[in-house]
Amino acid sequence: MEIKVLGPGCKKCQSLDKLVREATSELNIQANIEKVEDIPAIVQYGVMTTPGLVVDGKVKFSGRVPSKDKIKKILSE
């Protein structure tokens, strides 16, 4: 699974990154997690509010940090 956390380094982006890492390890998912901080790269996903989460090339949500349970649900879909 290819996971990208979009965010230029604000506090919310860091907490999303942390939650995603925790969620994948708790679910035992083999995932390649990358934090994208480059703005042009972020807008290429059509994301206007950070943080955002991209799973296998698809934007799952943006502009908020959901709970860990919600993230787990998204990742196990």
Partner: peptide, 11 residues
């Protein structure tokens, strides 16, 4: 429109 200052650039 919900938006925080850290999103001002992509916005």
């Amino acid at each position: 429109t919900p938006f925080c200052s850290c999103s001002s650039v992509p916005l």
